[in-house]
């Protein structure tokens, strides 16, 4: 060790900290000053490559963890949505059934409305809200009564598939509901005639809700003129029912030797089991 070097070394040791700082600051300043100068190496490119590798690992891990986390969240969310969707599907199924029913009801109401407007008589459209619980009697309960202008013995008609036929007559009238006695009832008699031959007779039901009618008191001479399928209409002579309302069709024709008239079995023109709305005819609005 040279004698001259010793004080310098001592000085350097003494100010070592400051010296190194000065060197660093100078070097840093030179870096800044020559930053971007052509020919000077760009450590950013190397640094970014190395650093990017580690960043990639961390980011990848974080991303994977995040994806896993979000997958779990998604799955939970999916399950929740599935349950909600299932509940919705059930609700919609119910709604769809209701919609179908409403459409059908709407169709029937439209039909009824059309019928109501097309009928050449003043009429009150009513809905059947009940049927006689017993089998012996086959009355229908409708949702309008005295307050709606319904009176006893008014004729009741209905339309099905575009065909308008006689249902029966009002038998009892309450304030807001009425009882209709249908032509199927064995106690209801209607003056009728064969539409094409104009032969008269008396139509009555057989009771017990049988959808069969009987026409009697038709002259035996009409046997050759009446055929199965012929239409039977109201005669209009008893002032209770308007004339030419359809009642039914001839089903069978029976001739008994000891009788002076024919026994005709009729098939009602209306399907009473499907009746929902009927119209009560009135003589005034």
């Amino acid at each position: 060790m040279s004698p001259a070097g010793s004080p310098l070394r001592q000085l350097a040791n003494r100010y070592r900290r400051g010296l190194i700082l000065a060197i660093f600051l100078v070097v840093s300043s030179l870096f800044i000053l020559f930053n971007g100068t052509p020919g000077v190496a760009k450590p950013q490119e190397i640094g970014l490559s190395i650093f990017g590798f580690f960043q990639g690992i961390i980011s990848g891990t974080v991303h994977t963890a995040g994806e896993f986390g979000s997958s779990v969240v998604d799955l939970t969310d999916l399950q929740s949505r599935y349950q909600k969707a299932s509940a919705l599907v059930k609700k919609y199924e119910g709604d769809e059934r209701t919609l179908v029913q409403l459409r059908e009801e709407n169709r029937r109401l439209r039909e009824q409305l059309g019928f109501h407007q097309a009928l050449p008589y003043f009429n009150v459209p009513v809905e059947i809200i009940g049927r006689d619980p017993s089998k012996v009697y086959s009355t229908l309960i409708v949702n309008k009564g005295y307050l709606d202008g319904i009176r006893k013995n008014l004729p009741v008609v209905a339309t099905q598939n575009g065909v308008t036929g006689l249902v029966g007559k009002v038998n009892e009238v309450g304030l807001t509901s009425s009882v209709v006695q249908p032509i199927l009832d064995a106690n209801l008699f209607i003056a009728a005639r064969v539409e094409n031959t104009r032969h008269e007779g008396l139509v009555t039901g057989l009771g017990n809700n049988q959808e069969v009618l009987s026409m009697s008191y038709v002259k035996k001479e009409a046997q050759s003129e009446i055929h199965a399928g012929d239409l039977i209409v109201t005669a209009g002579i008893d002032s209770l029912y308007p004339a030419d309302l359809l009642i039914g069709r001839v089903k069978t024709l029976t001739v008994k030797q000891y009788q002076t008239s024919l026994d005709i079995e009729l098939e009602p023109i209306l399907d009473f089991s499907r009746l929902e709305y009927v119209n009560i005819l009135r003589s005034e609005p």
């Binding site: 660093f24 840093s28 300043s29 870096f31 800044i32 930053n35 760009k42 450590p43 950013q44």
Partner: peptide, 12 residues
Amino acid sequence: AVTVSPLGYHTF
């Protein structure tokens, strides 16, 4: 090296 700052800025 890893940012876009001028070389020497953070060093200083």
